[in-house]
Amino acid sequence: MARMTMIEAIRSAMDVSMGRDDKVVVFGEDVGYFGGVFRCTQGLQQKYGVTRCFDAPINEAGIVGAAIGMAAYGLRPCVEIQFADYVYPAYDQIVSEAARIRYRSNGQFTCPIVVRMPTGGGIFGGQTHSQSPEALFTHVSGLKVVVPSNPHDAKGLLIAAIEDPDPVIFLEPKRLYNGPFDGHHDRPVTPWSKHPLGEVPADHFTVDLGQAVVRCPGGAVTVLTYGTMVHVAEAAAEESGIDAEVIDLRTLLPLDLDTIVASVKKTRRCVVVHEATLTSGFGAELTALVQEECFWHLEAPVARVAGYDTPYPHAQEWDYFPGPARVAEALSATMEA
């Protein structure tokens, strides 16, 4: 075991994967010599050479399109989009190509690629360094969508994603890169070294895709969440004194419905929490599933706490970000309903 930040864990996952399988290649903007604007690929080019880890032109469609071609050849590209906010030029390649190549070719060609991208707000990133576009990917048949919330899972999930035979969208909450963040922006940030999930196996291990985990057991209400909001939800539960069961979904597609249903049937209440905007967000899918699967067990309407339906603002960051107070309010309202 070693103590790692989320950045180090992600880097370690690529390092381990590249060391085990020479078909794994890593590229993206500033990913090579410089080691990435968030340092996630630092040292990989030096260790594995320029043909395994290299800089790409500033062209997201090119990065993903080239990765798809490489995967068709037989490599396992793990590429980086510098910010999730800049994945849209690659959306056609991801939706029309990566997601469908296995299906449309009846398995003659496959697309075992990972598209990594820093996601989420809470860093004064404004409109184009804060977005959470996961719902644009969970709506696409053929993709897998992963959002880790801590260094341990980030490494295990990323190795699993690289080894997975299908295309994986890997969203890394950049607010969590250096330490857990519970939404209390006015308090000093604690580093991952002081958090139990900052303990990460140094070697190869995986966290299975499609498996949620109960982060904090409780009996009164189920909180379905992922990424940064896992820590916000934990803080909200603690501060409100409500006995909430916080579930970290980890993989949004395919979704671990069994863990969700078991919890909601036990607590009979459910609050869904995400940073992304409310309307047609992934929370709508979660809410619909809970309603379908747990209707006769529910004591209260399923509540959603999400970003507002606006572009992500700059100055109003903390009015926008669904912090612990808003989550606690929803927990209380759900308990009183």
């Binding site: 056609d92 390649q93 029309s96 003659q108």
Partner: peptide, 30 residues
């Protein structure tokens, strides 16, 4: 789609395969 005949799966979305061809060639070089 005919992999064994060196014929990549055709997509309805225009031009997508042009960059994929480059990626395939890069992979061969790698």
């Amino acid at each position: 789609s005919a992999k064994d005949h060196g014929f990549f799966s055709i997509s309805g979305n225009l031009a997508t395969q042009f960059i994929q061809a480059v990626g395939w060639a890069m992979a061969s070089a790698i």
